[in-house]
Design a binder for these strands. Structure first.
Lengths: 327, 327
DNA sequence: TTGTAAGCGTTATCAT
DNA sequence: ATGATAACGCTTACAA
């Protein structure tokens, strides 16, 4: 790869002039500019970002810290982030932490020493003191890290309410719920909202993490101990898919005997049989917003920290009966 | 962040000495080493990778170019890659190309100017001349780029054969197939293998890309034009999921009336109802191997280019009948 | 065994 | 309007 020096030589100017035309600042005559541009084209020159980075202390890199890209909720988020980052000339460094503090630490120093310009984090460890002392622009996504850090999340409480409301409106009277991991604040809200409107229609409840395997176990337990019930709200779509699978195994008809609502709105929901009714978060939008916010922070366009709460919507597919439709 | 100069000062030695202890080369007395280590700890010093990168021309960064992380085949691959990269002190930069040459180009120059140490590419554009003239260590994954470039792929031809064989062995006599995008070499092989053993048992066939939506359309077409058939092989698991969904819509019982086999072995296959029998690629293993190979290339441990063809296996779940089991 | 200093490719200051 | 040059933080000759 050519260097700025070679370009300067080829164009018969100094490196300063080349730098000026590249960055479009300072005076440069039309001839000089033309010569430089010619040289750049001739040599197929592109500035060395490492060198530039050393001087400017900015890298054009964004660190993306998530538990596990393999969890189907995250790819869409990652995609959104990567899209807007790319549109603004940034690249993203992918980091899977498996929620392990240790890995998180490792990445944090790695990212710091490579001078990433900012961080997007979807992690549990709100107790991790390292974030606060990090002094890097960052925004939390789908999680609340700590006051003082920007966050974009969806309205889980309303989502939970909406789920209960939908189930009840379409005739369910015996409700059950599979909640998510207890330590996830944003997930807990879904449960709270659901319970608040379910009231004493709730006849059973259990917990599961977000792996399909454990969700299947939870579903089985629920069927074993609380059947019959006619409305189920799962804390996310993966759990709902497990419920669906268990239902067919038991010859429980969905939605005739049992209505099921998931949460997230990931693509998996379209692929189950029958396709899953769900409370959809605006996932892509959340990723987009978080990244735009981060870029604002990085480029110092805004300074007051804020928390963005996005509305969720009901995506009616075929695991619920249409409102007003009889069983 | 502290700099090497500050460490040197604190330890009362020169920067050269600090550098020596950090990189463990050259002579350095025990006392000097101790002093430096103390200073490093005191100042919480970590070397600036950008500066180091400028000198060494290596960045510790690997570029990962894929069509779309949102396609459920890729997250597992990405995960494997990130895992082994991380284990060796490398980070990975995620790039989604949507198979668009233009985006690919953009990333290529971005990655190049930031001096990534190597590239892992899962892309179609084998015709893209830019790869060859890139002069960067790289390995193609799940795709064949061009001779001269290392590749790791799975044995699609044998996979196709295995699918047909499985279907036939468990009693299917009227076979159909939904093939993948024509331009994907590695996917085409699956079809070739399948056709070779299906022979004249094949009564119908169509194409689809890997989006669920289009797969659903393809499945509908196939049912409309060729039903009844009793064995179906889909070019990947997403297509198979679409088939499953369409089957329940039509009250076709799986596997009693129709046996279905997918390809890939992604987690989605566990979540369908019933869970999907599939030809499983060793996805994680492929990602792992590709990355290890890339690191070998980067660190010049091996030089002859090779193509690694990994075996596939049958994952029997519940969309096929067990061999020898009657219908 | 240790230190001085050149150099990696930029940007920006300061003369001119 | 343009060119020298110092500086960014590191590694590695080379000298001592």
């Amino acid at each position: 790869m050519a260097t700025i020096k070679q370009v300067a030589k080829q164009a018969n100017v100094s490196v300063a002039t080349v730098s000026r035309v590249m960055n479009n600042n300072g005076y440069v005559s039309a001839e000089a500019r033309a010569a430089v541009e010619q040289a750049i084209a001739d040599l197929d020159y592109a500035p060395n970002r490492v060198a530039r980075s050393l001087f400017t202390k900015t890298s054009g890199l964004i660190g993306l810290i998530m538990p596990d890209i393999t969890n189907p909720f995250f790819p869409q988020l990652a995609r959104a982030i990567e899209d807007v980052a790319n549109q603004h000339g940034y690249q993203v460094v992918l980091c899977n932490t498996d929620e392990q503090l240790e890995k998180e630490q490792g990445y944090l120093v790695a990212l710091q020493t490579m001078h990433v310009d900012g961080l997007i984090i979807t992690t549990n460890h709100s107790d991790n003191p390292n974030y606060e002392k990090l002094d890097l622009p960052m925004v939390a996504l789908d999680r609340i890290v700590k006051s003082g850090i920007d966050a974009v999340i969806s309205d889980g409480y309303e989502g939970g309410r909406l789920a209960a409301d939908t189930l009840i409106t379409s005739g369910a009277t015996r409700l059950v719920h599979i909640a998510g991991p207890e330590q996830l604040q944003t997930v807990k809200r879904r449960t709270e909202g659901f319970l608040d409107v379910a009231g004493d229609r709730l006849i059973g409840m259990t917990h599961s993490n977000f792996t399909f395997k454990e969700a299947l176990t939870a579903a089985q337990t629920l069927f074993d101990t609380h059947w019959p019930f006619d409305g189920l709200f799962a804390a996310n779509d993966v759990i709902a898919a497990a419920v669906l699978q268990e239902a067919v195994r038991r010859d429980v008809r969905v939605p005739e005997d049992l209505q099921v609502i998931g949460y997230d709105g990931i693509e998996l929901g379209e692929m189950t049989s029958p396709p899953l009714t769900t409370i959809a978060q605006p996932i892509y939008e959340m990723g987009r917003l978080a990244t735009e916010r981060l870029l604002d922070l990085i480029e110092k366009r805004d300074v007051e920290t804020k928390e963005m709460l996005l509305p969720v919507t009901l995506t009616e597919r075929q695991t619920t009966r249409r409102k007003g439709q009889d069983r």
